[in-house]
Amino acid sequence: MQRMFMRRVGLALLLMLAATALTFWLVTAAPGNVAALIAERAAGAGADGEMIAKIADDLGLNDPLPLRYARWLGDALTGDFGISLRTGKPMAEEFGERIPMTLALLTGGGVLALVLSLAMGIAGAASNGGGIDRVLHGMALVGASTPNFFVAAMLVIVFSVWLGWVPTFGVSGLTSWLLPWITIALFPASVLARVVRVNLQDTMSRPFATTGFAKGLTRGAVLLREALPNIAIPYMTTFGAQFTLMIIGAIVVERVFGLNGVGAFFIEAIRFRDFIGMQATLTLFVVFFVSINLIVDLLAMLADPRLRRPRKA
């Protein structure tokens, strides 16, 4: 058990290392030429070849790639992700300002997705093929197919422009958080609702559910007490996957609503060829993505003894 745990953690760390090395290689291989960009910042258009060469030399940009990666990794592990080429501020500072915003988005969206999906999935299973079930199925399908930027745009049009209930831009108070949260939660909620629905239906045809009915339990009681705990593992796995995909939702939402989060920073870094900012943000994403997957795997192992057995390849 403990060995399996350690193995998973070790693999996750290895994956983080490999993924950051790959992004480092890609991003530094990008021929934006960091030295030229820095020289341009410092001296405007007057940057000449000599100056660029000196900066490249000072920063060790002429060293072999593995050495540069090792140096970058050493700095990163102590929390030093370099200085953003776009804003001129240390990345650690940028992150300090922006991570809370993105985390608030992800947490609110995640909670909303959790509540919505369970409600929709259970209601669908309770109605089992009836009108409510079909309507919810349709809603889940549309929810899983509507681009999140279109959802955001429609929410703005309806609630800001037509009804004037919430401001179109920025955040002030709880109501202005609602539109971003709904936008970000709609897609995962739809996918998860179907997971709940499909798995509940599957579980309801198992022998123990029949036993429940035979004991005289109502359909609702069987559904909630016998069937629901059994969908925990597929639900958790999908929730983890969807939660990590919410990064994309955050990128879009931060742009539409003008929020200053990590996602917005990432897009700006790409547009301005801020390769240091790009590498730092990608690293953050990798760490987030891999850790969430790891947590989900470990939780699933805790919940289901069958997953603890080492399996054959």
Binding site: L15, M16, A18, A19, L22, T23, L26, V27, A29, A30, P31, G32, N33, T244, L245, I247, I248, I251, F266, I267, A269, I270, R271, R273, F275, M278, L282, F285, V286, F289, V290
Partner: peptide, 27 residues
Amino acid sequence: SVIDIALALPSLVIALALMGVFSGANF
């Protein structure tokens, strides 16, 4: 291992990063 590394980030994030890489003069 290569496949797992490529799946370590959502596809769209990778595509976005690559668009950044491709914005360099070499491309």
